[in-house]
Write a protein that binds this DNA or RNA. Structure first.
Lengths: 154, 154
DNA sequence: TCTGAAAGTTTTCATCC
DNA sequence: GGATGAAAACTTTCAGA
């Protein structure tokens, strides 16, 4: 179970994880070793899955982001597994969400350029089985790209 | 300008930034201090915008992710700025993409539960000016949530 | 611009509260 | 659980190539 200090600490870590244990301790009001013990717990429990550097999409110059809204032809587990496997294996695929609503999947692609996007789109959707239809939205401004989640305490 | 070593190093940092300079150096074939100099350059140039901990959406228990596809009523810069300002100010807003295609914005919301989502949706879209229509997709499985971008060398 | 070694911090870990 | 302090590890700095 998580208390308010965990909520605070996790919010800080989702905002900036590059600080030292002492700096984090000052923010949340704990000693460095107390901070460390909590962070260890998040890591071993799998609550923190990874720590990553986030690049500026604008400065990554020619990077093109596209969002594909995908509907499958068939709804069986096998067909879903097949599509997921294909998406996860593709290096261009940045994010995949299984959704309920007007579509089955929302897929964010990050490619080095427009030509690379066309290739990926054809390979993953156009010439692929089980895809009934898909719509592409080209991102011209990635206004906010956080991964922060709310932490429920208690 | 970035060389192949930068491309390698940036890919590694986007995958796992929690490693030491020595470990990273072993992966890319550089000494710890050479790695550090390059990372410093990424940080001061703004290519690396931040370093964050990524939480497991499943273990974050009651966290609900939703994706809203939003169309504005008017296309002027002022109207866009107004909507963006509102979205950026909301703590529930995890990601915002300005897109071209069938919609104007793709917005990812992360809320502590369904009730919180309903509040946020009403506040940000239903009872808000300039929103012509919006569709909500409820995420029932965040299959992949990376932020990795391709790095163009040269 | 890289390497390698010395100096300065941070993290780790055992111990006590 | 949390704090403290010593040891180990890491990062930073700087001389030399």
């Amino acid at each position: 179970m998580l208390d308010e200090l965990d909520g605070l600490l996790l919010a800080e870590l989702q905002r900036d994880s590059s600080r030292t244990l002492r700096e984090l301790g000052e923010v949340v009001g704990l000693s460095p070793s107390a901070v460390q013990r909590r962070i260890d717990r998040y890591r071993t429990s799998g609550l923190i899955t990874r720590e990553v550097a986030v690049l500026d999409a604008g400065l990554s110059a020619t990077a093109v982001l596209t969002i594909c809204l995908v509907t499958l032809r068939y709804e069986s587990d096998q067909h879903h597994a097949e599509v997921r496997g294909r998406l996860l294996a593709a290096p261009e695929v940045q994010q995949v969400y299984a959704v309920s609503g007007d579509y089955d999947y929302v897929v964010v692609l990050a490619t080095a350029g427009m030509a690379e996007y066309r290739d990926a789109g054809r390979r993953l959707f156009q010439n692929a089985p089980n895809i009934q239809r898909y719509t592409t939205l080209v991102v011209f401004d990635p206004i906010k790209t956080s991964t922060a989640l709310p932490v429920t305490i208690g």
